[in-house]
Amino acid sequence: MATIEKITAKKLPKEEILSYGHRACQGCGELLSVRLITKAIGPDMIIANATGCLEIVTSSFPDSAWRVPWIHVAFENAAAVASGVESAIKVLKRKGKLPKDRNITVLAFAGDGGTADIGLQALSGALERGHNFVYVCYDNEAYMNTGIQRSSSTPFGASTTTSPAGKKSIGQHTKKKNLPEIAVAHGIPYVATGCPAYPYDLMNKARKAAAIEGPAYLHVFSPCPTGWRTLSDDAIEIGRLAVKTGVFPLYEVENGKYKLNVKSRELIPVEEYLKTQGRFRHLKEEHIKIIQEEVNKNYELLLKKCECFG
């Protein structure tokens, strides 16, 4: 792996890969994540994008918000399309049709639905085959593009349009699928979680993921004002609360070694996080207690992993 230059406030790349003028909602955490990640990696990249908000808001023909080569084929196959792009680059380099020393990053973007549900098989296949690419799941915890339906990445207690809270339901009654751990289970060289509320952490992880040979998986917590029913200027605040409460800890797993990137001496109670969002408004004290216990348990487990496999 080449030495990676760390991004700091003074060494912030100026070049924007994702243009302004796209059609995302105000205050979208997802587009911010994508902007930071692409900025960090730089223009020598090819993007394979799953169907979803990102694809819709950036590619309405004849407009395009992409300053790099970008391809969208379907919903569940971003990892497979990226596999194809990567395989082509490899063989074209070998045959002298692309410069051998050219370091083109292949980047796949998909949402939580396109990753945790419909695209899980394609992702697993691509990670297992060991393609040299970066897969980014921008997780806004539901199918936002189709109108806020639950996914397997929707957290317990969230009200969505297909897991609505009602007299006989607290909303989503299942636990959020742990995608980063599924990626880790493939034994790939790099897995990390990120959040645009911690831009330098996210950008440096993106840069590292691109530099590492082999598959890298980034799971990015992307607050969605529309789907989470928050104000449009809340994304950063909510992202910070998610990390500080332990709801979404920022960590990385490099060649099996766990590292917690943002440490809190003491976690803030999850209620502080939950109360910022309309999707949790219906929750009662007993539900919040369940969520708190789950967060504590998961956080402790993560700390133990960092301790044992750090």
Partner: peptide
Amino acid sequence: SVCCGSSATGA
């Protein structure tokens, strides 16, 4: 899907 990606890249 792989075919789409690779063909689009010029292979």
